[in-house]
Amino acid sequence: MKFLIVGCGISGITLARKLAENSHQVTIVDEKDHIGGNCFDYFNQEGICIHKYGTHIFHTENETVWRFLSRFTQWFPYQHEVKALIDGQLVPIPFNFNTIEQLFPMEMANRLINALLSEFPFNKKVPILKLRESQSKDLQYLADYVYEKVFLHYTEKQWGVRPEDLDPLVTGRVPVFMGRDNRYFQAKYQGIPLEGYTAMFEKMLDHPNITILLNTKFDKSMSKDFDHCYYTGPIDEYFDYKLGQLPYRSLRFKFLTFNRSYFQTNSVVNYPNNYDFTRIGEYKYFLDTQCGSTVVSYEYPEGFSLGENERYYPIINPENKCLYQKYLDLAKGIDKLTFLGRLGDYKYYDMDQAVSRVLCLINKLPVC
């Protein structure tokens, strides 16, 4: 069979590889001049692997996803840690026991840690909005402190709304960790592709049954030459925005190169309360690149404007979910068309979730 895939991001690439391995002919079209979508990276002259669209760290508990991608890359065993500037100190994020001891006097810190352990299990994550529901005065104080210093202003910058106006799936991504693990993720599998994400994608696409057309805008008339079309672009764009635009948040990056070994103490530093940017990423940390210069990116959240910037994060709330469902109802009336990916499904997907979505889809297809 012949399949058309619109979008050469991680979802489209994974789908193309799986279909090609099942002896199907696959054509991928993408408007961009490169593969990989927003996971695209490249190496500069100093050998630093730079993520063009902001820092991407792969992490998963899904062994099937990990094994699949491991066919196409050797992993650098990177364990991600994030710090934030809070009250003039760089402290571990998510907020944990080490953060408490660094920010509060010893006696107060011990009291707060004991109060946390009396209500929540050790080594577990608790969403900040859940912590605010506690009846303990100590935990109410801590929750208000974390909410104000770590969560509130960062969220307002990142999303342009207060935390309560976001879907719990979004707010749950910013927890308090009941322990001393400074890693941002506790997933079993974590790492960065040793030769970069782009090299991994190139190997995934290296199959005689796959044809790639970059710098190519999708036209619906293309579908007539294929048995099925998988569309990973924006679902509202496919329907020419006839029901209105689905809202997104976007990002603007300012990349700077410094002629010094390092700019900051670790790969990502968040600035919840200071400046207009939310964080600074330093790329040489990801593959432990040793060289005399360093590259960082300042990350400025902004609203998405059609034709002016990139879609990054769908704004998930009841109103937008309802609009997406209306578009999905329109799609049900079209044969041989499937939407997927962050833009097609209008969901926030981590990289492993995007791959898992495709692998589950493939397993249900009668032709595979």
Rank of each mutant, 00 (worst) to 15 (best):
F339H: 01
Y141P: 14
D41A: 15
Y349I: 07
F226W: 00
L117Q: 12
E202L: 12
P105C: 11
P301K: 11
T171L: 10
I93V: 15
V91D: 08
Y346Q: 12
D329L: 04
I48L: 04
K137F: 15
I35D: 05
G333N: 10
D240R: 10
Q325V: 06
V6C: 10
L337V: 02
D144P: 05
V65K: 03
M108Y: 00
H51C: 07
N98K: 14
L340F: 04
N309D: 08
M200W: 06
E299S: 10
D138M: 14
P272Q: 07
E195R: 11
V126F: 07
L365R: 06
K203I: 03
T265E: 13
Q158I: 12
Y285T: 11
I28R: 12
Y348R: 08
R71G: 07
V176M: 09
V176I: 14
Y324H: 13
K32G: 04
Y53D: 01
T64P: 04
I334L: 07
F177T: 04
P94D: 05
T171Y: 11
M1H: 05
H51D: 09
M106Q: 15
I192C: 09
V367I: 09
D329Q: 04
P318Y: 00
K220N: 02
K18E: 15
V355L: 06
V91T: 11
S305I: 13
D206G: 06
D227S: 14
K32M: 08
S250D: 02
H59C: 07
E237S: 13
I28F: 06
K18G: 06
K18L: 15
H24P: 03
K284R: 14
Q186F: 02
Y154W: 09
K137H: 15
F40E: 06
G303M: 12
N363K: 10
F95C: 01
K32D: 11
H51N: 04
H56Y: 00
S305Q: 14
V174S: 13
S305W: 09
Q186W: 00
Y241C: 03
V29M: 02
E81K: 15
I316N: 01
R249K: 14
A354C: 05
W66P: 01
Y346P: 09
Q190A: 10
R111A: 14
V358F: 01
F122Q: 15
F122I: 13
D41E: 13
I362P: 05
I113H: 05
T338A: 04
